[in-house]
Design a protein around this nucleic acid. Structure first.
Lengths: 103, 103
DNA sequence: CAGTTATATTTCTATCCAGTAATATAATGG
DNA sequence: CCATTATATTACTGGATAGAAATATAACTG
């Protein structure tokens, strides 16, 4: 999955909400429907996209499909951020220096 | 600017490209046009969105508008990633352990 | 197996947005 | 000022997509 697609997948707020819920524990589709103010088809569609992005996995237990978080692809975002990090940390360092001077 | 909007702004590949170019040095709109395979209005439109997201600033020099990177808002993305970080680092740690055992 | 529960898929529609073309604004130089 | 350069804005259009409704698939239960 390309970086660009990953950003697009995460741009949708409801999908980030689903990921947040899965961070705590695996959830069935029904549970996610209850948690998300989305219709069941809506949740299923988002889950498909998240699955194709590698961000969730499924485990089937009877009729229930239990979705769990697979956060590894997020490391790509982390990697993308890397060259930018020094910019805001520089700014923070500058701010800290300034605050020190004011004391 | 809300987290959610920031993700949407970054979801557009051309905008990420512009940010990448600005990481090296400030650039005029014309330079960005040359670098981005976008029309001038296209670049201007993206720059407006980036500016509204706080990701770039402008400095006017004669007729030229020089855009520069303002990476601070990206810290929000970094912060959003935070609770997910242990998931992939756990996975990596587990993988490393497994590789160690196999040697 | 008939009914029920749980999830997935398809179809349709309204909306959003990137890209383009045309035009407007702004600053400079002769 | 008039022409030129540089950028911004507006209006339009096509393509993508989220959401809703209807339907399909699949697995359990009695």
């Amino acid at each position: 999955m390309k970086n660009s697609l990953l950003f697009e997948v995460l741009a949708e707020p409801k999908r980030r909400l689903i990921l947040d819920h899965l961070r705590q524990k695996e959830r069935s589709v029904g549970e996610l429907v209850a948690l998300s103010s989305l219709s069941q088809p809506g949740v299923s569609k988002h889950l498909r996209i998240l699955r194709e992005a590698g961000l969730v996995g499924v485990r089937k237990e009877a009729q229930k499909h239990l979705y769990y978080l697979r956060a590894e692809p997020l490391a790509e975002i982390d990697h993308w951020l890397e060259p930018y990090r020094r910019f805001w940390s520089d700014k923070l360092a500058a701010l800290e220096r300034q605050l020190d001077e004011e004391e």
